[in-house]
Nucleic acid binder design. Structure first.
Length: 587
RNA sequence: GCACCCGUAGCUCAGCUGGAUAGAGCGUCUGUUUGCGGAACAGAAGGCCAUGGGUUCGAAUCCCUUCGGGUGUACCA
């Protein structure tokens, strides 16, 4: 298993010591730090961390086994390591008790900064996510998007980036007119209040109705086009209707966002940006970057980057999807002094973003290279794709509701089955927190480039590698710490303490935490942190099962175990926080 | 047609910047609790890492072939 590519304090020491030894021995100039590949040995008895010596073999023209031997023999004393030994082609390191306790545990317990780094210090990064259409409610696909946007933002903040979270609201266009049209014709002046429906649900209902009506009478498609023209002309009646319905939808979205914990620093509305972009394109045309088509459309040749030809303005002079995206991106860099600009959007738009970034580059914007599409796979159902119009979507509000109901049932059952157990004071909040964690972890744990198959019956369990498992581990530790009658403080060991295998595994897990965050953030992939924290919890639960803590006689052992518990709790709590999952103290 | 992505245990997924014996969860079978939360822990069974080749001391991992699945390829958004 490979690890430790980033800022770990002891890494620098290893690099410099090894370089010195090899330079002296083999009389070479410099060792490329990239050759030093750290790993976690398969078994803690072999070592706590390891360095593979294969890469040196070629350079030094010697067997990796021999090199490992030489390195171990010439290793210098270090505060970080107790022993360093060669094992075949590997150089294995065992952490010193001093490092584990006075450095690692101390950091975990006392430093709110543990896990963070300053890779992004002084840099601003924008994360655009969610970007919904205001004609129908949010479904599970949006759920994945929102969660990725939120968590990637949180991860970047751990690296000390200044993060600007934005949402581009697609609030105009032909698809918006469809629900408006159906509402106007068949709506009977319904309102969220009169129907008791959430605003986005009400409008979504008419989006579906429109589709049915169009199947009965395809001619109404013309009415929609007219409606869009009226909207663009500022027709009062159409505009009023639009404002009313959009207001309802956005109100509905806000409830969903709030419930799942999505927040935005800045909203961009397509209705305000869609006319822009023309000037930039016409300017580029004047500069000879774009061409004019026979019918007057403006196009750009992207053949050199194998993206063909792209129309930027239609023959009738109207804007396109890409036109307003050009405009919005220019605005973003004008509004904020951005170092990076991320778009969390599904992989079906990969081509669109390649085109967009290429265009901006050709237009001469130096920041074009700092734009990045965070692409992810789709969410499918066991029997295929989700389709709004065919009613096969998993509505995100409904999903949260049903998960909450399941969690509440579970809590009641567990409570009545164990009368001696603690009482859940706030069943409603707890059920909500458990439901949230089940959904969030389920979605986040899958790598970005993979599609997710969502099987409602099987996917959202509370057992195994799930959000509730993580919460359970946290609650268990809290319960344990509460029962401790002595203060849990970090003290220097009077007698040397030998950590057992499970304890060492936990400590090595804690060492990896900053690395897991950095890798997760730099890859824009929360799944890495998901895997990490699940493994840490599994290691903890095994440790907990195998060893007594509070009731063990040896005070030193008890205190050291409690320290580990507290440290795991700290790291677990931070991670859950990054995921937007409540770290329950009871459940 | 072309481009990109995916193919690892019955199912859902880790592992992929090449390295020590390919790992988890669910499901199936079997154990563990007077010890602090059993939403836990352990064991068994289950793999030609889609296929065929190549590079390498070494390939699930990199390159190419084939097959299977997905997405994109608009003067739609």
């Amino acid at each position: 298993m490979k690890i430790l590519n980033y800022t770990i304090e002891f890494k620098n020491q290893i690099v410099s010591v090894i370089s010195t030894i090899l330079q002296k021995k083999y009389n070479i100039d410099k060792i490329d730090p990239g050759l030093l590949k750290f790993e976690i040995p398969p078994d803690t008895n072999m070592g706590h961390i390891a360095l593979a010596c294969f890469p040196f073999a070629k350079l030094l023209k010697n067997a990796p086994q021999k090199i490992a031997q030489e390195l171990s023999k010439n290793w210098l004393e270090s505060i970080y390591f107790k022993t360093v030994e060669a094992n075949g082609p590997y150089l294995n390191f065992f952490f010193s008790p001093t490092y584990l306790k006075q450095f690692l545990l101390k950091d975990c317990l006392e430093s709110p900064e543990y896990g963070k780094s300053n890779l992004g210090a002084g840099k601003t990064i924008m994360v655009e996510y969610s970007s919904p259409n205001t004609n129908k409610p949010l479904h599970l696909g949006h759920g994945r998007n929102n969660l990725l946007g939120m968590v990637v933002s949180n991860l970047l903040e751990q690296l000390d980036y200044q993060v600007v979270k934005t949402c581009l609201v697609n609030d105009r266009g032909i698809h918006i007119c469809k629900s408006m049209y159906a509402y106007q014709k068949y709506g009977n002046a319904e309102t969220p209040e009169s129907t008791g429906l959430k605003g986005d649900k009400l409008v979504g209902k008419y989006y579906v109705i429109y589709d049915q009506k169009e199947k009965e009478n395809p001619d109404i498609a013309e009415d929609i086009k007219q409606m869009l023209r009226d909207w663009e002309d500022g027709d009062t009646e159409v505009r009023n209707l639009w404002e009313k319905l959009n207001g309802w939808v956005l109100e509905g979205f806000n409830h969903t966002y709030q419930r799942m914990g999505a927040v935005f620093d800045r909203l961009y509305f397509e209705s305000e940006t869609y006319t822009g972009g023309r000037e930039a394109i016409l300017e580029a045309y004047k500069a000879g970057i774009c061409e004019k088509e026979p019918n007057g459309a403006i196009s750009i040749d992207l053949e050199d980057v194998k993206l063909g030809k792209k129309i930027l303005l239609r023959g009738d002079g109207t804007s396109m999807y890409i036109t307003q995206d050009i405009n919005t991106t220019i605005n973003k860099f004008a509004n904020y002094d951005l170092d990076y600009n991320l778009y969390v959007v599904g992989n079906e738009q990969e081509n669109h973003f390649k085109v967009l970034f290429s265009i901006l580059k050709k237009f001469g914007y130096k920041w074009a290279d700092r734009c990045e599409h965070v692409s992810y796979g789709m969410v499918n159902l066991p029997d295929g794709k989700m389709k709004s119009r065919e009613g096969t979507v998993v509505d995100f509000d409904d999903l949260m509701d049903s998960m909450k109901a399941l969690a509440a049932d579970e809590l009641k059952e567990r409570y009545s089955a164990n009368e001696n157990k603690h009482q859940i004071e706030n069943l409603d909040n707890t059920a909500e927190a458990i439901a949230q964690s089940a959904i969030k972890y389920f979605i986040l744990k899958t790598n970005l480039n993979k599609d997710i198959t969502f099987n409602p019956k099987e996917s959202l369990s509370f057992d195994g590698a799930t959000g509730p498992y993580l919460q359970y581990t946290h609650a268990r530790i809290c319960s344990l710490l509460n029962k401790s009658t002595t203060a849990i403080e970090l003290k220097e060991d009077v007698n040397p303490y030998e950590w057992n295998e499970e304890e060492i595994k936990l400590l090595v897990g804690l060492v990896r935490f900053p690395d897991a965050i950095q890798q997760s953030a730099l890859d824009r992939n929360p799944a890495i942190l998901c895997t990490y924290i699940y493994e840490l919890c599994r290691t903890f639960n095994k440790f907990y099962y195998e060893h007594q803590i509070l009731k063990i006689e040896c005070v030193q052992t008890r205190d050291n175990r409690l320290l580990i518990c507290k440290a795991v709790k700290a790291v677990l709590g931070k991670t859950l926080n990054i995921f937007g999952i409540e770290a329950l103290t009871r459940m």
